[in-house]
Amino acid sequence: MTEGNFVDYVKVNLESGKGGKGSVHLHREKFITKGGPDGGDGGRGGHVILRGSKDLWTLLNFKFKRSFRAGHGEHGAKSRSTGADGVDVYLDVPLGTVIKDADTEEVLLEITEEGEEKILVPGGLGGRGNWHFRTSTNQTPRYAQPGIPGQELSVILELKLLADVGLVGFPNAGKSTLLSVLTTAKPKIADYEFTTLKPNLGIVKYREFQSFVMADIPGIIEGAAEGKGLGYYFLRHIERNSTLLFLIPADSKDVKNEYEILLDELRRYNPEMLDKERLVVISKSDMLDEELQSEMRSELEKQIKDVPFMFISSVAQLGLVELKDKLWKMLND
């Protein structure tokens, strides 16, 4: 998926359909000139319905069309005939989409399952026909209910990626390169910070035709939890990753300090993220000879005691099979 096609935040305007009017009709046929009321009910206005689709990875469908309107219900008719319901509008969204009120930013609902359908803006009810208002003292009512108007709502659709593994690291840590060698994804790669401005997804193929999803998310910087740099744009995408892979380059001045800064940003954004499985991966390890790698390993064993770590090189293809084995085990334990 190219960067320009990844849309994860849109504002859309929605309008449900108006209910049809109830009918005012008195029964008439041959030899019956003064029949009773038989006006039917109006049809319901169309709903605006959200539907989850596992085949979608982005909100690109809403990039150029931002307004949606459901159909109006038809009016009731004679012989107690109910008007047809208005046509519902279905909006297919990727799994992991959060819907917020655009004015209050209140979370209205979330779509997380394939085929899940939720009515976001209900259509107006149809009015009742005059048949419902007959009484012993008013046997020919000449009035009926109008249909209830539809509703208008402006909402924000916000995608939080549903990936198995989320890549966490500072800009230029090698996340995009790792994703490109483990999957068929083609993220933008260059030797400067913030090459990745939007998340990239890739499917990692594993043994026996199995696979898992990995997300390369824009690089974090110190203060991201307060909105600096890409801020929430980065952090909200890792809320639903089950495993976090902390990628730190071997030429880092202080691996432990980088890891602690990254961890602290997650903690300040949402403490629950610290409950996820974690793996620290030292990238660009082809820069290290055996002696330096052994020395760094000894230091990390003392400094990062509760989290597993390993050395890889995306460019030299070192340790990638072991990395996939480790991630698969973490995802399936």
Rank of each mutant, 00 (worst) to 15 (best):
S154G: 15
G43S: 11
V24L: 10
G43P: 09
G36T: 14
A163E: 04
Y143E: 12
Y9K: 14
K54V: 09
L153N: 09
T135V: 08
H27K: 14
H237E: 03
Y269M: 06
G126I: 05
K253F: 00
P146V: 06
F68Q: 05
A225W: 05
G231W: 03
L167T: 05
K276I: 07
M330F: 10
H132C: 14
S180Y: 01
F133E: 04
F170C: 03
G19Q: 08
P271Q: 11
K305M: 09
N257I: 06
I119S: 03
E74M: 14
H237T: 03
M273E: 13
T195H: 04
G150C: 04
G169T: 00
G76M: 07
D103A: 15
P122N: 10
L50Q: 12
D38L: 08
H27F: 11
K302F: 01
D191K: 12
D286Y: 00
G46F: 02
S285W: 00
M1I: 07
L292G: 00
A77C: 10
Q303D: 08
G202H: 06
T58P: 13
R128P: 03
V155D: 13
K228L: 12
F68K: 03
V281S: 01
N61S: 09
G150S: 04
G219K: 06
E258N: 13
F170Y: 02
K324N: 09
R128D: 04
V204N: 07
D88R: 13
A185L: 11
R142N: 11
K253W: 00
G147A: 00
N172H: 03
L153Q: 13
G166A: 13
V281C: 02
L182G: 00
T195F: 02
I312L: 06
